[in-house]
Amino acid sequence: KCNTATCATQRLANFLVHSSNNFGAILSSTNVGSNTY
Rank of each mutant, 00 (worst) to 15 (best):
K1H: 14
K1S: 12
K1Q: 12
C2T: 01
C2G: 01
C2R: 00
C2V: 03
C2E: 01
C2N: 01
N3P: 07
N3F: 00
N3E: 08
T4C: 15
T4H: 14
A5Q: 12
A5N: 12
A5I: 01
A5V: 06
T6W: 06
T6R: 06
T6C: 15
T6Y: 10
T6M: 07
T6D: 13
C7Q: 03
C7G: 02
C7P: 00
A8V: 06
A8M: 06
A8W: 03
A8E: 12
A8S: 13
A8P: 10
T9Q: 12
T9N: 14
Q10W: 09
Q10H: 11
R11S: 13
R11M: 13
R11D: 02
R11N: 14
R11Y: 13
L12V: 15
L12Y: 15
L12I: 14
L12D: 07
L12N: 14
A13D: 03
A13K: 04
A13P: 13
A13R: 03
A13M: 10
A13W: 04
A13S: 11
A13H: 06
A13V: 08
N14C: 06
N14H: 04
N14V: 11
N14F: 11
N14W: 02
N14E: 01
F15M: 08
F15A: 05
F15S: 07
F15K: 05
F15G: 02
F15H: 07
F15C: 06
F15E: 01
L16I: 15
L16V: 15
V17M: 07
V17F: 12
V17G: 01
V17Q: 02
V17H: 05
V17P: 04
H18I: 15
H18T: 11
H18Q: 09
H18K: 00
H18M: 13
H18V: 15
H18P: 06
H18Y: 12
H18D: 01
S19Y: 08
S19F: 06
S19R: 02
S19A: 02
S19M: 08
S19K: 03
S19Q: 15
S20F: 09
S20Q: 14
S20E: 12
S20P: 00
N21E: 01
N21A: 02
N21C: 04
N21W: 00
N21G: 02
N21D: 00
N21T: 05
N21M: 01
N21K: 03
N22I: 05
N22Q: 01
N22V: 00
F23Q: 05
F23N: 07
F23R: 01
F23S: 06
G24C: 05
G24D: 02
A25Y: 12
A25M: 14
A25H: 09
I26V: 08
I26Y: 03
I26A: 02
I26C: 02
L27C: 04
L27P: 02
L27Q: 09
L27K: 05
S28P: 08
S28Q: 12
S28D: 06
S28I: 10
S28R: 01
S29K: 04
S29Y: 13
S29W: 09
S29C: 08
S29A: 07
T30Q: 07
T30I: 12
T30P: 00
T30L: 04
N31G: 04
N31M: 04
N31F: 00
N31L: 01
N31I: 04
N31H: 12
V32I: 14
V32P: 05
V32F: 07
V32M: 07
G33Y: 15
G33F: 04
G33D: 09
G33H: 12
G33T: 14
S34E: 08
S34D: 08
S34V: 08
S34G: 11
N35R: 09
N35F: 04
N35G: 11
N35T: 09
N35E: 06
N35Q: 12
T36S: 12
T36A: 11
T36E: 09
T36V: 09
Y37I: 11
Y37R: 10
Y37A: 09
Y37K: 08
Y37C: 10
